[in-house]
């Protein structure tokens, strides 16, 4: 147990100490001592600031991501279940996925302005493609034997969706959702950097423009922590949702 703890923490702690010690006497304007950054962190990210800038960001992120998930999975199941629809839709979807999502910011600003709606739409329109395409792929890959079994036992309609298509496509859907999560954070930050009056992206750029370097570093750390925490939460959720999948893989690996 202690050994495990040590292997997990040893390198991060070493790196942290190294940074701390190496930057201790730093005169560089751009790389202030870690001590200064930590002090700035405590001073900057107070409760009012969290409420004024972090919460709105999280709200946009959640709204955009959840909407994209609903849209992506819903459309993906519809497209994946029909061979003709899939053949017709695939080139279009491949194109939309290939468009670098951040360029959607100026397009969407044109008609949605610079409010919250714009940020949510940006996140949705960037995140929906990986979810959609992975769902299509997942539905297509649902085991033929299982599909036959469902038909033979009269599992049709909603039950087919609930017990066959959704769980069968779940591994791919989750892969899509994971790709979309990191994309959602990127789009949230960028849309706030380009046009906003509050939010994490806005605040960090403000610090940079006003040359508040330690504060800017602390903002980068906040973004890093946010990314880390969300990906850990995602991993917990995945363990829960795909328990059968990992279990079966383990079982196949052993035999």
């Amino acid at each position: 147990m202690i050994r495990r703890f040590l292997t997990v923490l040893a390198l991060p702690v070493t790196l942290f100490l190294f940074w701390y010690v190496a930057s201790r006497t730093s005169e560089s304007f751009y790389a202030p001592p870690l001590r200064t950054i930590l002090v700035a962190f405590g001073d900057t990210w107070t409760w009012p600031r969290l409420r004024a800038d972090v919460l709105p960001s999280l709200g946009r992120l959640a709204a955009g991501y959840l909407l994209a998930a609903l849209l992506g999975v819903g459309l993906g199941i519809a497209v994946g279940a029909s061979r003709r629809l899939r053949a017709a839709a695939e080139p279009v979807l491949e194109f939309f996925r290939a468009v670098p999502p951040p360029v959607l910011v100026p397009v969407i600003m044109v008609f949605a302005g610079i409010g919250n709606a714009m940020k949510v739409i940006v996140i949705v329109s960037g995140c929906v493609w990986p979810i959609l395409l992975n769902t299509v792929e997942g539905v297509r890959a649902v085991d033929a034997a299982l599909s036959d079994t469902s038909r033979a036992y009269g599992i049709t309609g909603f039950a087919r969706l609930r017990y066959l298509l959704l769980p069968g496509a779940a591994p791919q859907i989750i892969t899509g959702l994971r790709q979309a999560l990191s994309l959602a954070i990127i789009l949230m930050v960028i849309s706030e950097m380009v046009a906003a009056s509050n939010g994490l992206g806005f605040t960090i750029v403000q610090f940079q423009r006003s040359f508040a370097i330690p504060q800017m570093w602390s903002g980068i750390i906040v973004l890093g922590l946010l990314g880390f925490v969300l990906s850990e939460l995602f991993r917990l959720g995945e363990r829960f949702a795909l328990g059968w999948y990992h279990g079966r893989r383990e079982a196949q690996r052993r035999s």
Binding site: D143, A144, A145, L146, D148, T149, A152, Y153, Y163, L164, P167, G168, A170, W244, Y245, R248
Partner: peptide
């Protein structure tokens, strides 16, 4: 009518 398929590993729902 009920069917038992050859591919036992694939005809059972692994998530159930």
């Amino acid at each position: 009518m009920a069917v038992v398929f050859q591919e036992y590993g694939r005809s059972l729902f692994p998530w159930l």
